[in-house]
Amino acid sequence: MTAKVPVVTAISSGKGGVGKTFIAINLAACLAQMGKKVLMVDCDLGLANIDIMLGLNPAHTLKDIAFGNMTAKEVLLNTQGGFDLVPASSGVKEMAQLIFENIDRIKTAIQEISSAYDHIILDTGAGISETVLQFNLFADHNIVVLNRELTSLTDAYATIKVIFQMFGKNRFDLIVNSARNAEEATRIFNHIDSICHRFLGFPLNYLGYITYDETVPRSIMKQTILSLTFPQSPPAVDCAAIARKIAVGH
């Protein structure tokens, strides 16, 4: 019973610009602060940006794993957040249309190093590409991030619906981002939850919300991790609360 089996969590949003990557990074940093060994994989193969958000400029990326040139160990980086990162390549067209075998190779590479971690976080890309679906299939937990925009609500629902229909998964953990207050976040969650219940026949799980705050764009601009630089700011406090839930298995 010595080998660790990490919890693999995929974070998706459907729509881009919802704050998925910000949340993924801050959750990873919070989990690391709690003493967890965390591996983050940037699965946003078309337009990767975790490396940029962390001020890194990696020489090797997921692309090298996908095409069988390198192992995950050779590619991974230590980050300021105390977690390890497998970065992706930005603007590589071939990556956005990864075929099955490449995705399989990535999965195998992640599995090879998985025993060193408690948590593996997959930051999937925007949209509902096969790649996004495949990483969601691979994950044990599926987190969907949405905000107060109608387009985000619709895309989050579409993501849930497609994953449910393709793979039969019916457990999704939701995070409402950029909420003005707890009440608004709850209203947004209850709304999408009732629609899932009605049309798909299962309820959603509410993981929490992140308060809208000016510190967020500022921290992104400075390429820092809010949970570390301003742990007392409302969004960082919210991230920490969600991370605690994730740490105990939701």
Partner: peptide
Amino acid sequence: SMVSVEEKEALFAIKDHLQQK
């Protein structure tokens, strides 16, 4: 897999509420 007209209508029902709020 497409979000149907009925589903969209249901999703959009929150619209007015969010804007007012």
